[in-house]
């Protein structure tokens, strides 16, 4: 799922921009250093491929709905984590610009949720070790599907955290989490199956293209342990969340207070303060119950209508003459 501008607070958005930007910079340096120059056009054209293949829908057996490939894991199998992150990032930028998927402020979140987790966590920790050596069909399927599922679970968790920390929706953390994770379990399975179908096709037709990833140590048992541990940890986490909901909300609220609210306090607080001094009708925010705020909100309506009229008027006044002639 794409995180959207409208759900973000500037602090969360900016933090994720910094994180993703740093990853991007590192990936770019690594790609320049380690890949031969033929990879450069390859990555660009593969970005276009991912874009196109994301629109290719297939039927999901037994459900009547359809799914498609997101492609990060597949790219990681071809290009390694750094190349995959760069390529997926370029896809996300174009989608944000042209199809308003997410938006500019949310770009940092989206690169992280949909690029970082699959490319830098799921791929190196799960998929690469599981596929090392000469994997049989079963091990290959296991590695790819586990990798896709875990990558998407982490991404979904990222979306939940970012949304809650931004505080633009009233969704309670737990309810949102319980909605998102199972949905993304399904999406992860679809992603895994689609990646597997593509990889199986390539293994049949052009096995040499996938060779790059079968190098590396054959530590697939270790990876399996990591994967199982991840799943167990996830299970424990949900159990903890369901039995001690207040504890978790409290922990999150605390994190929010310390790390997110703090920068907001400095910027927001000051802005709010300045607003209180400059605005003729101060303190417009409704925190908690607003008992005697009737006048304030009513005040907003007339002024709001007038504002829109002015904006509309400006638009009409600026209309190019050419069109009218």
């Amino acid at each position: 799922m794409h995180m959207a501008d409208a759900l973000l607070s500037p602090a969360v958005g900016a933090t994720m921009w910094v994180l993703s930007g740093a990853t991007l910079g590192r990936s770019a340096t690594r790609v320049r250093k380690t890949l031969d120059e033929g990879r450069l056009p390859l990555m660009g054209v593969l970005g276009a491929f991912v874009f196109a293949v994301q629109m290719l829908n297939f039927a999901i057996p037994g459900t009547g709905s359809s799914g498609h490939l997101a492609g990060t894991l597949f790219l990681a199998l071809l290009l390694g984590p750094h190349g995959a992150f760069l390529t997926v990032s370029s896809v996300l930028v174009v989608q944000a610009l042209f199809f308003a998927d997410g938006g500019l402020l949310a770009l940092g979140c989206n690169l992280f949720n949909m690029g970082f987790f699959p490319a830098f966590v799921a791929y190196p920790l799960i998929v690469r070790p599981l596929l090392a050596g000469a994997p049989g069909q079963g091990r290959r399927a296991l590695g790819i599907i586990l990798g896709a599922v875990i990558g998407l679970q982490l991404g979904a968790f990222g979306v939940v955290l970012e949304t809650i920390l931004s505080g633009r929706t009233a969704l309670p953390f737990k309810a949102f989490l319980y909605a998102m994770q199972p949905i993304h379990l399904a999406i992860g399975l679809v992603e895994g199956l689609a990646t597997l179908a593509l990889v199986a096709f390539l293994a049949r037709t052009r096995p040499e293209l996938l060779e790059t990833q079968s190098r590396g140590r054959s530590a697939w048992k270790g990876a399996l342990v990591v994967a199982v541990m991840a799943l167990v940890a996830g299970g424990c986490f949900s159990w903890f969340a369901s039995t001690r909901p207040d504890g978790l909300e409290w922990a999150l609220a605390k994190v929010g207070q310390q790390e997110i609210e703090a920068p907001e306090q400095s910027l927001h607080g000051r802005i709010a303060h300045a607003q209180a001094r400059t605005a003729l009708m101060p303190d417009y925010a409704f925190k908690g119950g607003g008992e005697s705020r009737g006048a304030t909100s009513l005040a907003g309506v007339g002024g709001g209508v007038l504002t829109l009229l002015i904006v509309g008027g400006v638009g009409i006044a600026l209309r190019p003459r050419r069109k009218m002639a």
């Binding site: 300045a274 607003q275 400059t278 605005a279 003729l280 009708m281 907003g300 007339g302 002024g303 504002t307």
Partner: peptide, 10 residues
């Protein structure tokens, strides 16, 4: 910083 609708309202 300035809430324009409020300003207009007043």
């Amino acid at each position: 910083l300035v809430n324009l609708p409020h300003l207009l309202e007043s």
